[in-house]
Design a protein around this nucleic acid. Structure first.
Lengths: 222, 222
DNA sequence: CGGCGGCGCGTGACTTCGTCACAGACATGC
DNA sequence: GCATGTCTGTGACGAAGTCACGCGCCGCCG
């Protein structure tokens, strides 16, 4: 089964497909599973592993003392938890929470290997640095979004983005934590959208009725 | 004068003090000056240089279309613009603005050297990655701050931190952009603090009168 | 010296958003 | 059907951002 790891990596992480690195990967990593809801990393922890996600999604978020949350980003297959990476490499504590949203499979690389490969593999270096840079930019973009855009614009954006077949199968609560807002506020905005005929509301589901109308709401910073 | 660069670097960036690296630094870098108010890097630019700041401070911030700003962090002597670094290494665009707050001097390293040294110098690698990791954590912490703490707590924090000899020589406008708020709001809060006897207000200056009282305001997430 | 213009500040009116509380609607299992 | 927990709707309120305007201080210039 060890050969399988490099195959998975080659497919999902094409930039890592350098022969010498893949041999190392086969020899020195293992795969793990985390069930939906499981914690990957907690705030303040010192990380010891770098997970390369091969299946499922991980949500990374910060949380206030009172329980309000803001989602920073999600890790998809083919990506990695760069916060973990930056903790490992910079010896800082993890500043957020990461939980599996679905069942997650990942190839885990040990701290020592992460660091060693930074020196020995051009491909590995480019991969890790690229991830960190893109995430950093993404988080800053998210911050701009949260600070400067009005909720109706962000909500419209979110709905258009999250819709599958014009349906968003989420509760107002889930939408609120993704947007960094509060459930009651999201409910009110959704109600307003419904009254304008842009969406239809059901329990745990929003159906988009007028995507052009929704797109018209994006303007503030869209 | 070339020998001087490695001396400056040794003093301000002690973790870079590896002989072979310093020789490279002497041979391949130059120093630059930027006057107060000068732009270091603009949003959307592709960066070509990595500046290691040796004197002065740089403010890195995001800006809304309407002109509202949020300061992400400041770069002090001995630090570097890690956003630049992450752009360089990850080939992403710079997602914010960086301007010199005071006259700034810096040693600049060319893109090619930044990348080459990542492979050849352990010290360089540790330096760059450490900077990125700490900044990433700092920005996330800032986001928590902005999202979850009330303005009076953040303002008290800011005043205590920025005071020199119990004086903060800034306009309400400057304070507001640092806090990611609006001038009018800051004015109101400062007025309230004055009425509670915690500060005294003059044109372009806040004088702290009761630091213990100010510290008592920090509690929400402090 | 007087007037003028820019900047910094104070303040009121209004909007948006978060918080809290509570009620009703729906789902599920018994 | 009934009970319980989850999801949603809504009103009241407070915190914060927006907009507008006026005032005082200061430097400048005629």
């Amino acid at each position: 089964m060890a050969a399988r790891v490099s195959e998975i990596v080659t497919e999902l992480f094409p930039t890592l497909a350098a022969p010498s690195l893949l041999a190392e990967v086969d020899a020195r990593t293992q795969t793990v599973s985390v069930p939906a809801g499981g914690f990957i990393c907690m705030e303040g922890e010192a990380c010891q592993m770098l997970p390369l996600v091969t299946a499922g999604t991980v949500r990374v978020f910060v949380q206030s003392d009172e329980g309000r949350e803001v989602t920073l980003y999600r890790i998809q297959p083919g990506e990695s938890c760069v916060l973990t990476a930056s903790c490992l490499l910079g010896e800082a504590d993890f500043p957020a929470f990461a939980v599996a949203e679905t069942d997650v499979r990942a190839v885990v690389v040990r701290l020592a290997d992460v660091q060693a490969w930074m020196g020995t593999s051009e491909a590995w270096r480019g991969f890790v640095l690229g991830l960190i840079a893109r995430r950093f930019a993404e988080v800053i973009g998210r911050m701009e979004d949260l600070m400067f855009r009005r909720l109706d614009a962000r909500l419209a954006d979110y709905l258009l983005d999250a819709a599958i077949d014009s349906q968003v199968a989420r509760t107002h609560e889930q939408i609120a934590t993704d947007l960094g807002s509060a459930r009651a506020v999201v409910s009110r905005h959704l109600k307003a959208l419904e009254q304008d005929g842009l969406v239809a509301l059901d329990r745990s589901r929003v159906t988009l009725r007028d995507t052009a109308g929704l797109r018209a709401l994006l303007r503030p910073r869209g």
